[in-house]
Design a binder for these strands. Structure first.
Lengths: 177, 177
DNA sequence: CAAGATTGACATCTCAATCTTT
DNA sequence: AAAGATTGAGATGTCAATCTTG
């Protein structure tokens, strides 16, 4: 997804910028105060730019999407080398059906195999294969290197710590049903 | 999009959490150091949770996606009440083709109209209609209220300022062609 | 030829319906 | 009835091809 929050139009806005400058504002346009707007718009723009870059690198080198890598890696490094479909969906930011189709895809490439769950016939295990473990290792290594160079290294340790606090304050305000 | 970075599997991971706790780690799994991981994973999880919530509210009350609102609002508050398709695509985080189809959709609801550009026959203007301006006003008002309550208010002014700095440090490391 | 706009083909992702098992 | 897994339908988004105009 990438979706943005509307920003007041900049007349004949420049063609290149990731975040519109928002210097020229039309009277009457609802806006957020500057500090808030920069924090919010930058959040969206940064997410968009970073995930696009990471997706592109992974796709080119390993034929994996971020979601596929997430699934593959979680199965690969589970102590049992297998994980039930539902448990896969829970930790990831993915729906059950998406996980089912991702596993289809990875199974088609011989990176994962499905097998029945003996203790609960409803369940299905996703098993990592040798090829899957090997690819997961290389892809994850590359991916973390990318995250370091694009996200970690441009920031100070203190900024990273503060980001962690911010996410903690923002998350988990969804009371269950 | 929502896509996540793989996190080392938590055995029988809990079913509710947005961010896996990552306390149990399998030896051999590539990882980022804790502070880095919290900053990065929280970033992804927060983006996912916030945009889902905002999308849902807008869709339910106004039948608009975030992208549709972005397009509608930019046209509505442009000084001329109109904008060329290409200029629409540039400021937004959207491709030209997506903008073209969003304008189709909005035009079908009578919120926007297309018209030829006299000075350049290749160009097409998207005009805001009265109905479009009215809806944009209400939807944007609602949307900013949501952003305030979900993103701005849980944070301190100082944290918002720091976020702005972080995005500035992370963005714009893409040298043009 | 390059630029603006549209279209077709395809990837990604979610929701709702379904089927099986508990 | 509820839970796990899959499937169908549809929304959202991109890339590449095309068509028109500069």
């Amino acid at each position: 997804m990438s979706s943005a929050t509307p920003s007041p139009a900049t007349p004949e806005a420049g063609h290149g910028g990731a975040v519109p400058s928002c210097s020229e504002v039309v009277p009457g346009a609802p806006r957020l105060p500057d500090v808030q707007e920069r924090a919010w718009m930058g959040f969206l723009a940064t997410h968009s730019e970073l995930t696009r870059g990471l997706e592109a690198g992974l796709a080119e080198r390993f034929g994996l999407s971020l979601s596929a890598l997430e699934v593959l890696a979680r199965v690969a490094w589970h102590p049992d080398g297998r994980l039930r479909m539902n448990d896969l969906a829970c930790g990831a930011l993915l729906s059950q059906s998406r996980v089912s189709r991702l596993v289809d895809q990875l199974a088609g490439r011989g990176l994962i195999e499905r097998s029945a769950c003996p203790s609960d016939s409803r369940g299905v295990y996703a098993h990592i294969t040798d090829a899957g473990r090997e690819l997961a290792g290389r892809a994850l290594e590359f991916h973390f290197q990318e995250v370091r160079s694009r996200f970690v290294e441009p920031l100070e340790e203190e900024q990273l710590r503060l980001l962690g606090e911010v996410w903690e304050q923002l998350l988990g305000r969804c009371p269950g049903p």
